[in-house]
Amino acid sequence: MNVVFIVAGLMAIAGVLGVILAKQPVYQVISTVFSFLGLAALYLSLQSEFLAVIQLIVYGGAIMILFLFVIALLSARKDPVEKDVGQLTRPKLLGYSVGGALLVMLAIVGLFGHEGRLDWAQVPADFGQVKAFGYQLLTTNVFPFEVLAFILMVAVIGVMILVGRHRA
């Protein structure tokens, strides 16, 4: 379990670093998928098996394929989007320093915060498995489930209105 947490955490962090530093959008997508794999392993180490599978299918599969399609649609041209990639300009330096300060602050809160002292509760053996999760989702929390259906519908209609119309 120790090894799982360390390896998966490092995978997730390496994936995010790849997104920050990579020059080509395709490499960014690959490192994002890498990060999602690490997060799925972390969910498994937290006994949330259903969510780990959902993470792989929805994030690692569907969303990243969407990104790849858009990159394939748009990056056929030769010039890169960002002209100053790879060099350290002043706004970038500012962004790095602000983000670094945020990182240090949040990491201190996470490591020494009072909320994190909580001990792990005892849970039954089927915690987080599909049957138990689905039962909870469709009985106690059925309203968020319905709201999700509505949100997805709005997203589909919105995308169709945005890019689906034909120009004369």
Binding site: L42, S45, L46, Q47, V109, G110, E115, G116, L118
Partner: peptide, 11 residues
């Protein structure tokens, strides 16, 4: 889980 909750929060 093997690690404490603090490790997950920090990660």
């Amino acid at each position: 889980p093997a690690f404490s909750l603090n490790a997950y929060v920090a990660l």
